[in-house]
């Protein structure tokens, strides 16, 4: 188990390394050669003189060769900004002040802030939305999937399949707007947009319920299908028949024997979906005016805020890699066949 963990961790670190390289190449040299966008020029403001651009290049360290820049980016990501860069970027300010300006992911062009502080400001919104949506979609999809599997081809099953199809086919921005128009605007059941921090739990939930539900329905559709097919498979397994032969009641057979086995692939998918969503649910955040990571990414991309965009991409990648590792660990705990391999 320990060796398994170490192996997964090393693998994860390697993937993150590859992602940092890809992000660096894409947002550095590729931007420059392909679109003739120079970060220094962007940073220097409107119509800068060549001297200004040169000064900014020196300030941001962009005058160094690419491999030096990449090496430094990597070092900053792991260890934080160096004393030299702190003095260069924020001379004369205290450490706390400088942290606001410069972080592991660099500093934003568009705002006088570090990318780190931007991410940590907006991440809780995405985290909350993901959390609410995930709870909702599990609560919706798993019971429905199980009931459909117990009574395949019943009316319940058929109606479910229709709803699953609708849920999967409706784009979230369209469905989200419909929900906003009818449920929030016409009926006034939900707020039109915005986010309230968790310090006020009632308002927090009130603001997240509608976007959470819209997001959840999309995922619920997929999870109903998976739960149904997994349950149908496990219900026909020999060990389920054994459980019945032992005299176990139907609920026990379904929950403790069939679902306990059927949930393994669902757990895997759930972990990966969570990782994906935590990197920012762009469409839903924009539709509902939730200023999460996805929303921040759109803002940054529109303003050509290169460090912020790159920072969010890298941050999302790290979350997805972490989610993968967590999924592997959870799976190993749930399934002796993986653990004992």
């Amino acid at each position: 188990m320990v060796r398994f963990l170490i192996r997964r961790l090393l693998g994860g670190i390697f993937v993150v390394l590859v992602v940092t390289l890809a992000v660096f190449v894409l947002f550095g040299p590729v931007l420059r050669w392909n679109s003739n966008i120079s970060p220094a020029r962007l940073y220097a403001g409107k119509n800068p003189s060549p001297e200004q651009i040169e000064r900014v290049s020196a300030l941001l360290g962009l005058d160094k060769p690419y491999y030096v820049q990449y090496g430094y980016t990597l070092k900053r990501l792991v260890l934080g900004p160096s004393q030299e860069e702190r003095e260069r970027v924020c001379p004369g300010s205290t450490a706390a002040e400088c942290d606001e300006l410069l972080g592991r992911f660099g500093s934003s062009f568009a705002k006088q802030r570090s990318v780190d502080s931007l991410i940590w400001t907006h991440f809780p919104v995405t985290l909350s939305l993901t959390f609410v949506a995930a709870i909702l979609w599990l609560l919706i999809s798993i019971p429905i999937g199980i009931i459909s599997a117990i009574r395949p081809r019943s009316i319940f099953d058929r109606v479910t399949i229709v709803f699953v199809l609708i849920g999967q086919s409706l784009p979230v921005y369209y469905f989200g707007l419909l929900a906003l128009y009818f449920l929030a605007y016409r009926l006034g059941w939900f707020p039109l947009s915005g986010y309230e921090p968790l310090s006020n739990p009632g308002q927090w939930l009130y603001h997240l319920l509608l976007p959470g539900l819209v997001l959840a329905l999309q995922f619920a559709a997929i999870y109903v299908r998976i739960t149904r097919s997994q349950m149908l498979d496990t219900l026909s397994e020999d060990y389920v028949r054994t459980a019945r032969a032992k005299g176990a009641g139907e609920t026990r057979v379904i929950v403790r024997h069939a679902f306990r086995n059927a949930m393994l692939p669902i757990v895997t998918m759930f972990g990966l979906d969570l990782g994906l969503l935590l990197g920012g649910a762009i469409l839903i955040e924009v539709t509902f005016g939730l200023q999460g990571l996805g929303w921040l990414a759109v803002q940054a991309a529109q303003r050509l805020d290169v460090p912020t965009t790159a920072g969010i991409v890298l941050f999302s990648a790290i979350i997805i890699v972490a989610a993968n590792i967590v999924v592997d660990i959870v799976n190993a705990t749930l399934d002796p066949r993986i653990r004992l391999e």
């Binding site: 020999d238 028949r241 054994t242 459980a243 032969a245 032992k246 005299g247 086995n261 066949r337």
Partner: peptide, 27 residues
């Protein structure tokens, strides 16, 4: 069904053909 269930595993029990698949793999 309920009465039959109380008999299964108590009054009458069954052994199946394939022991590789007849036991719950995760318990």
């Amino acid at each position: 069904g309920g009465e039959l269930r109380r008999l299964r595993g108590a009054e009458m029990a069954m052994i199946f053909q394939d022991p590789m698949t007849s036991l719950n793999p995760v318990m």
